[in-house]
């Protein structure tokens, strides 16, 4: 149940400002850790600004949606929702410059498949990815543990899909709305857009689901207000109803504001990112390859001199998660 979940306790935030603050903080942390000679006033000429990061992530959320849509075998909705949650949660506490969103995106979907019991092997999974598949599977498996750690192992996600079913059953039973099934297309469209917003980090899944149902109803020129006020909130106080109405209004306005970032701008951001990203986490960089080689050599040394029992794993954790501490 959502009310007792880690999702509510740790991953549902009070408002958008709190999210923005977190993102800004980790954007600054990255700059601070780099020890570069660029002074603070000019840091955004080289590094990404928080706003640029937002734009980039929005673009990658669109990519995530497309990737899931095209995925074979076709993916259940719950997997997509869970992947979105992971992706958003990860970048609340990490910067895109540390971990490239395209790598985290694939890892999120892979982990979501596992958690939502949608069984695909890594081989099947990377078959959906263009380019070097072996490299892709290496990246995904390398990042999987890091991702789980950054999510603090809060892997259970409460998606709005089941609440939607609950509302439809309830409306069919307790409300006189004619043919509630026709709301479905509107609901699906709404929920697809909801995941491009921060709504799932701010509101309960049932609130999002109710917003979707109400939105779909208004699109069909139906009014379900009396269902909400007289049936759902009959025994609840006025204050609770006011909170819900505000939440629904906010979710709907968030969805209305969804727009794809300008393509040209994203292209420039990506170029900038290629320069300023943390090379230690770039699988194509020399520094990353060298470290991998060192790690392998270290392994060999350890195996040869097995009498020395102390395992030096500091290198491993550094490669997996330099920012995790």
């Amino acid at each position: 149940m959502f009310s007792t979940s880690s999702q509510r306790k740790f991953w549902t935030f009070s408002d958008e400002n709190e999210l923005a603050r977190l993102r800004e903080k980790h954007n600054y942390f990255f700059y601070a850790r780099q020890n570069s000679h660029i002074d603070e006033q000019q840091r955004f000429t080289y590094f990404l600004s928080p706003d640029e990061e937002r734009q980039l992530l929005k673009q990658y959320e669109l990519h995530l949606k497309e990737f899931c849509k095209r995925f074979t075998p076709p993916m259940p909705k719950g997997v997509v929702g869970t992947a979105f949650h992971y992706f958003k949660r990860f970048y609340l506490y990490n910067s895109t410059m540390d971990y490239h969103p395209k790598e985290i995106l694939a890892t999120c979907v892979y982990l979501a498949c596992k958690v939502e019991e949608f069984n695909v092997s890594i081989g099947q999974f990377v078959a959906n990815i263009k380019g070097d598949r072996e490299k892709a599977s290496d990246i995904i498996l390398n990042n999987e543990l890091l991702l789980m750690q950054q999510l603090n192992y809060h892997l259970t996600i409460h998606n709005p899909f089941r609440p939607v079913e609950g509302f439809l059953i309830d409306i069919k039973t307790r409300c006189s709305l004619a043919n509630p099934e026709r709301l479905r297309s509107g609901i699906d469209e709404f929920l697809e857009k909801v995941f491009l917003t921060d709504a799932c980090l701010l509101y309960a899944p049932s609130q999002i689901a109710l917003a979707a149902v109400l939105h779909a109803a208004s699109k069909e020129q139906e009014n379900l207000d009396s269902y909400v006020t007289d049936i759902l909130f009959r025994d609840a106080g006025r204050d609770k109803l006011a909170i819900l109405i505000e939440a629904v209004r906010k979710i709907r306005s968030l969805v209305k504001m969804v727009e794809a970032p300008a393509r040209e701008r994203v292209r420039l951001i990506e170029k900038k990112l290629d320069k300023c990203r943390n090379q230690e986490n770039n699988p194509d960089s020399e520094i990353y390859k060298r470290r991998m080689r060192e790690l392998l050599d270290e392994d060999d040394v350890l195996h040869v001199g097995s009498s020395r029992m102390s395992l030096d794993t500091s290198g491993v954790t550094q490669v997996l998660s330099p920012s995790a501490s």
Binding site: M1, R8, S14, R162, P163, A204, A209, I243
Partner: peptide, 17 residues
């Protein structure tokens, strides 16, 4: 499943940020 869907739909409706 009916009970579960209804429970999920109603749980968290009072959630206030």
């Amino acid at each position: 499943p009916c009970l579960r869907a209804l429970q999920d739909a109603l749980s968290g409706l009072y959630h206030a940020s």
